[in-house]
Amino acid sequence: MSMLPPVTEDARLIKALYDLVFWLAVGVFVLVEGLLIYSVIRFRRRRADELPLQVHGNRTLELIWTIVPSVLIAIVFGLAVDTMTRMTARGTLANPVAHVHAIGDQQARRRVEAAQPVDMVIEVIGRQWVWQYRYPGGDVITTEELVVPANKNIRLDMTAADVIHAWWMPQLGPMIYVNPGEMSYVWFNVPPGEYVGQCNVYCGVAHANMIARVRALPQAEFDEWFAQQSAAASVAVEPGDPERGRNYFMNSACVACHYIEGTKAQGKVAPRDLTRFATYPTIAQVDGLENNAENLRRWLKDPQSLKPGTAMPNLNLKAQDVEDLVAYLLTLR
């Protein structure tokens, strides 16, 4: 009955409050269930005709069990407010009104900027059904994981592209909704390690696949990783690899909607199954959209532009992933 081990100060504050109140609750639980079990055993009916004393009430007792719980509740309320105040003082999420605001609200934005000095700001877009991370400079965009330098103050500037999502990394601190048309923020400073969480507002068919991973690397390793990513973003992509494409397909949101016989992909949203995709004359039954590598590339990059209203969202795939997926899909015969 314990929360996951916290790795940030905010998560520690939350867990400390939870632990304290949990044990208080256990105390009340033992008292009530103890009285209940004792009564059932001690006051079992022994004779069919026994008639116990007809007690209608007792003012003193009733006052006690009104006042004592009230005091207890007041204390717990005080503890919670204290935790909130401490989190607000840290400039972190316990003050959501400052940290969730309409996209155009410059005043709220200035408050956020002033809340806490940060070493790195990463823009996060939640969309059906991936988290997309855009690093400073704009060249590096990742979706599988958020790689951050360890022991640095990180701020995530988050918004949603479609429906409501929620950012929940249990070990990293408070959860927050990520709403379309609004900005939400989280701050964290974590030791090296890998942390996992996922979208926590139901957002549609592949909601369960909207995993969020944070990998914190020591600064030197992070710099190396970032340089690699920057370089990769500027060089041409290599030819698609069907095996990599298959891996990507089976471990992403694709499987929630698509069906491929004999695989993990058992989704039933897409109207046609993909088991023999390469033999289909057209893509997504769009007239004139012949099923070839070039058209498939265009389709994967932006399905809505080729078939407005299709259930398939723009997943903002990276160029290399598109190449790999094209290679894989065209092996399906």
Partner: peptide, 13 residues
């Protein structure tokens, strides 16, 4: 327990 705002920011949903 879950009415406490900070705890709720963990257990919500």
């Amino acid at each position: 327990i879950q009415a406490l705002v900070p705890v709720n920011q963990y257990v919500h949903n």
